[in-house]
Design a protein around this nucleic acid. Sequence first.
DNA 1: AATAGGAGCAACCGCGGAAAG
DNA 2: ACTTTCCGCGGTTGCTCCTAT
Length: 290
Amino acid sequence: MGRQPCCDKLGVKKGPWTAEEDKKLINFILTNGQCCWRAVPKLAGLRRCGKSCRLRWTNYLRPDLKRGLLTEAEEQLVIDLHARLGNRWSKIAARLPGRTDNEIKNHWNTHIKKKLLKMGIDPVTHDPLHENNNQQAKPAEEISSSPANHHHIVPEANSEENHSSSSSSPTENCSSTTTTTTTTADDSELIDNICIDETLLNSLLMDDDQPPLVDAISWNNNNSNDNLPQAPAAAENHGETVPSLPSLEDDCSFLFDCQDFGVHDYGLDYCFSDIEFGTVLNSLEMTDKH
DNA sequence: AATAGGAGCAACCGCGGAAAG
DNA sequence: ACTTTCCGCGGTTGCTCCTAT
């Protein structure tokens, strides 16, 4: 009856991952692709639960992950989506390429939540906490100065979802920050692609299976770049046939995570230019902490 | 220079739905 | 149809680093 046990609870290691463990996991997924997490620890030679492997991969080792703080545009998008989706972090993360649900969740709890509270906005309901607080929350001109602000969804356009439409739009109230983080043109385009069309955004709410909007855009662009090495090709250096990885895994940024153990270990050094290695090294500094 | 407190983030825990047998 | 397990998600914890005193 049923399936095999997920993993032997005895002897399963917990806590922070070591570089060696990361190497094993990356090496395994590079050659075998993502499948059957239950079998991964055993096959990869890891004393970890499959669940832990999946988490490590999706939150830290995945090829398409961005590093660093969310940009102002991304932050604004998170706020907008949270106003509509609530704490459905995975759904929100699906609309932000390179960001994980865990990352967004952490960023929400540590940054955005406080920011909204400071502005007199309830981070749960996106309603003003108090009328007075709301008045003094943010000068209108400061709000409108947000790069992404003009993309905000008009609440009235979605009465069905808009539980807070009776008051000022949460997304209108919470758009600005006092910091002057640089927002790139790409970020603005990101918001454009997602928020400019109310119908589009509504469809996000309706169709969970819809592919990531920005993913499609950015990955189409990436995939059109002939300079990018392809993961399967790299895996062939191991002399193994690799089941076709999802297209996202084709991004060369995946290899950045290999730096700790040396990209040469994978026979992938030919893939990088000096500039790319610089990026790799920067990324390494982050992973070295572990 | 030492230390306490806060902030940020990676990882774990537990639950629910889906799927295998 | 039912049991068992897998997978993914959201909430929470605890460690590490940073900053203020």
